[in-house]
Write a protein that binds this DNA or RNA. Structure first.
Lengths: 210, 210
DNA sequence: GGACACTACTGCAATTTGCAGTAGTGTCAA
DNA sequence: TTGACACTACTGCAAATTGCAGTAGTGTCC
């Protein structure tokens, strides 16, 4: 049976629409530019273009440089057409995995120190990616965008990432202050402060700004 | 070989630490309460407690009600100890999957209308979850928390979710306004407006508030 | 009394990840 | 000049996870 087009297949196909890439370039490019919208493993990103070839949406040929070969992939007109049909399906719901929050939610079998360490780790992970996006924007101003005609799209996307990172960082600060007032992780329960927060949230108001 | 404890195993073990649950309850509870920190499929959530039993971290027995049986799982003292050792490992980096953003990033092979539809779908998905959290907070005020001593933890977690949802919703509004000024999805490139946004982002300033 | 939603799962194929392994290339330093 | 080490450029395989179909009992409403 012919393989099935997944969202990941369309992601790779969309990259191929920009220019031909080698398998390796594709894995690097996809991991860098799609990390905060569609994070996929290197392994998968090596497999996807092969599937596209099987479907007739891309062609491949080997290039040699000395004793080394690499696979170059190029989109076909069938591939371009398939890309156009991507919009036909309903967008999948967002999916957010943050182990740090899971640990926080069950922080009552650890110490306050554990909670602080978890918050530090989350901050460090987010900070790294936050910086990477800021640097990328600086490079757009400096050397320009690798695909100049697409700048409006990647900049709008970057706006999302920056907003997201800032929000998470603000929340981490907020959470640190809250935790500072906890005598322990366990059995604290519905304190006055927690009730105040619950009331704000039930009214859909932000406790960070009120 | 004995099975390996994954983050998902610890998530289920942490739930079992609260009280004994049936397999079905576990799937429902985990899907409701962990959706925005550690989203897992129903199928997996049926398998995890079995693994915990195999590891000696939980016991199981069948309860019958008429012609129907259900599996009840209970944590063991070995399970409680294993939970305590969870903190030993480094927290995994956050992982955010938003297909709508992927489509936006490659919006240049579709129409402006496609972009607007994608934004609408994202808004609708986020709005649903946003409302669910607000309702949950109202229920805490009203009927109380199912595990009162843990209220401080779930409310702090809910704060994160609300901040996140509000940020995404604000960004969607922002993106709609930006797109309103686009004559087309393609070849727009580094317009004055895009350059202005890039400059703000490169300085780590939010275009939504400036 | 039949339709339909909900409870309560299991089996299986397909997707995706993580990790180990293989191998060539470029650079820097002892 | 010869390792060491990082980077390029992949593949194979086991394990984790998902999606879907299937099975079956229970409760409710018309």
């Amino acid at each position: 049976m012919t393989p099935k087009m997944t969202t990941s297949s369309y992601a790779v196909l969309a990259l191929l629409d920009l220019k031909p890439w080698t398998g390796y370039e594709l894995t690097q490019q996809a991991q860098r530019s799609l990390r905060y919208a569609w994070p996929k493993s290197e392994r998968l990103l090596y497999s996807e273009p092969k599937k596209l070839v099987e479907l007739g949406y891309a062609t491949t040929h080997k290039e040699t440089a000395g004793n080394r070969t690499r696979n170059v992939y190029e989109i076909t007109s069938e591939g371009r057409q398939a890309l156009g049909e991507w919009t036909g399906s309903r967008t999948e719901a967002p999916r957010i995995e943050i182990e740090a929050l899971l640990r926080l939610l069950f922080a009552d079998h650890g110490s306050i120190e554990d909670v602080r360490r978890t918050l530090d780790e989350l901050e460090s992970d987010i900070g790294e990616h936050h910086q990477a996006v800021v640097d990328l924007m600086a490079s757009y101003l400096d050397g320009g965008h690798p695909f100049p005609s697409r700048a409006h799209l990647s900049v709008l996307f970057a706006t999302f990432q920056i907003e997201m990172f800032k929000t998470i960082e603000k929340w981490i600060e907020f959470a640190r202050h809250e935790v500072d007032d906890w005598p322990d992780t366990r059995d604290l329960g519905m304190t006055e402060r927690t009730e105040e927060l619950t009331r704000l949230l039930a009214q859909d108001r932000s406790p960070l700004t009120h």
